[in-house]
Amino acid sequence: MISSYSYAAPVNYEIDAGGMHASVNFKIKHLGYSWLAGRFDKFGGNFVYDNEDPSKSKINVNLDTASVNSNHAERDKHLRSKDFLDVNKYPTAEFVSTSITENGNDLVVKGDLTLHGVTKPIEIKAEKIGEGKDPWGGYRAGFSGDTSIKLADYGITYNLGPASTEVFLQLNIEGIRK
């Protein structure tokens, strides 16, 4: 959907990563019985969006792996350890898009995810939430996307059981036009 405030050329946005209007969330099955959910509290990045030609769009997101937050201090300490994120060796994770295409009303964002020192291509199914002027004289655009990754693909091989090999990621971003 193109708003009446849309721009015909690519527009640069800074991700509003203060936690108020953006989030990077994850969930993984716990023993196959329930979901363990969490988020990364510190991240940032930018994106370029072109309403007329989404293929000219791109996104770059960096996150602080030590900011993992599963609402349980001891578990978070373990997630930061060498068994999982190894935050001392790999303090950041990064996603850089390689292509963005329209698929009906949705977007397909392909790119490279670097996590735990390993870079692999992933695909994010995304949707544009909206765009327009904000009450403070700025201009914003927001998107949401989902994907999943296999931990072993990124060298994270700690045995959580057969039901817990895949992590589902959700990225909700709101950008402020630069």
Results as ranks from 00 to 15, higher is better:
residue 100 I to K: 01
residue 61 V to Q: 05
residue 22 A to Y: 01
residue 77 K to A: 14
residue 14 E to L: 14
residue 41 D to G: 11
residue 78 H to F: 06
residue 106 D to Q: 14
residue 25 N to L: 13
residue 33 Y to P: 05
residue 98 T to F: 07
residue 43 F to C: 02
residue 62 N to G: 04
residue 72 H to E: 12
residue 88 N to I: 04
residue 18 G to N: 06
residue 46 N to F: 13
residue 70 S to E: 07
residue 71 N to K: 06
residue 97 S to P: 09
residue 63 L to H: 02
residue 18 G to K: 01
residue 96 V to Q: 13
residue 72 H to M: 09
residue 27 K to G: 02
residue 60 N to L: 12
residue 41 D to A: 15
residue 42 K to W: 00
residue 17 A to K: 00
residue 10 P to Q: 03
residue 49 Y to H: 07
residue 27 K to N: 10
residue 65 T to E: 02
residue 54 P to I: 02
residue 35 W to S: 14
residue 28 I to A: 03
residue 107 L to M: 11
residue 98 T to M: 08
residue 55 S to C: 08
residue 34 S to W: 07
residue 58 K to W: 09
residue 35 W to Y: 14
residue 76 D to E: 09
residue 67 S to F: 02
residue 38 G to R: 00
residue 20 M to Q: 10
residue 74 E to K: 13
residue 19 G to W: 04
residue 26 F to A: 06
residue 47 F to G: 03
residue 13 Y to A: 04
residue 64 D to S: 02
residue 67 S to G: 03
residue 94 E to P: 01
residue 84 F to S: 11
residue 25 N to G: 10
residue 56 K to M: 07
residue 81 S to R: 11
residue 44 G to Q: 01
residue 37 A to Y: 11
residue 62 N to F: 04
residue 8 A to K: 12
residue 24 V to G: 04
residue 83 D to K: 10
residue 9 A to T: 15
residue 73 A to R: 01
residue 72 H to T: 08
residue 85 L to S: 05
residue 86 D to P: 10
residue 21 H to A: 13
residue 97 S to G: 11
residue 55 S to P: 05
residue 76 D to I: 04
residue 63 L to S: 02
residue 45 G to E: 00
residue 69 N to S: 12
residue 99 S to K: 10
residue 27 K to D: 05
residue 21 H to N: 14
residue 87 V to W: 02
residue 29 K to Q: 15
residue 66 A to R: 08
residue 67 S to W: 01
residue 28 I to Q: 03
residue 23 S to Q: 13
residue 44 G to I: 00
residue 52 E to V: 15
residue 85 L to E: 04
residue 37 A to Q: 13
residue 95 F to H: 06
residue 51 N to Y: 14
residue 97 S to L: 09
residue 30 H to N: 12
residue 25 N to C: 08
residue 31 L to W: 14
residue 53 D to M: 11
residue 46 N to R: 12
residue 39 R to L: 09
residue 27 K to S: 07
residue 40 F to S: 00
residue 101 T to S: 15
residue 37 A to E: 12
residue 105 N to V: 14
residue 19 G to Y: 06
residue 59 I to T: 12
residue 61 V to M: 09
residue 28 I to G: 02
residue 16 D to M: 03
residue 46 N to Q: 13
residue 96 V to I: 15
residue 17 A to M: 02
residue 35 W to E: 13
residue 91 P to R: 03
residue 33 Y to G: 08
residue 24 V to S: 04
residue 73 A to K: 05
residue 102 E to L: 15
residue 12 N to S: 13
residue 19 G to F: 04
residue 46 N to L: 09
